[in-house]
């Protein structure tokens, strides 16, 4: 509830305005010669870092953009950068 996120367009806003988009795992690997395991790893598995992780957020009740932030998952606070 106390969580705030700095949107690159709108500035610091309350966390409720945003939707979580998961860890930043990079773009989808190309379909050709993709093994099912690799696909599953990419789509369903997470690193679940206890510490600072880069992740995607969507400003649902605002400008409607997807962007990444760094968040310390142990304190649930946005941090500047690694």
């Amino acid at each position: 509830m106390a969580f705030t996120i700095t949107c690159p367009v709108c500035g610091i806003r309350r966390g409720y305005e945003f939707r979580f988009g998961g860890e930043d795992k990079g773009p989808m690997p190309p379909e050709e010669s993709l093994a099912s395991e690799t696909w599953c790893e990419y789509v369903h598995m997470n690193n679940c870092i206890a510490g600072i992780q880069k992740e995607w957020w969507f400003h649902r009740d605002g400008c409607g953009s997807w962007f990444t932030i760094y968040r310390d998952t142990t304190t649930n606070q946005q941090v500047e950068n690694r």
Partner: peptide, 12 residues
């Protein structure tokens, strides 16, 4: 819908 389309094109 908009969120969905933008999400799946976010790297492009």
């Amino acid at each position: 819908t908009i969120e969905w389309i933008r999400y799946h094109t976010r790297y492009d």
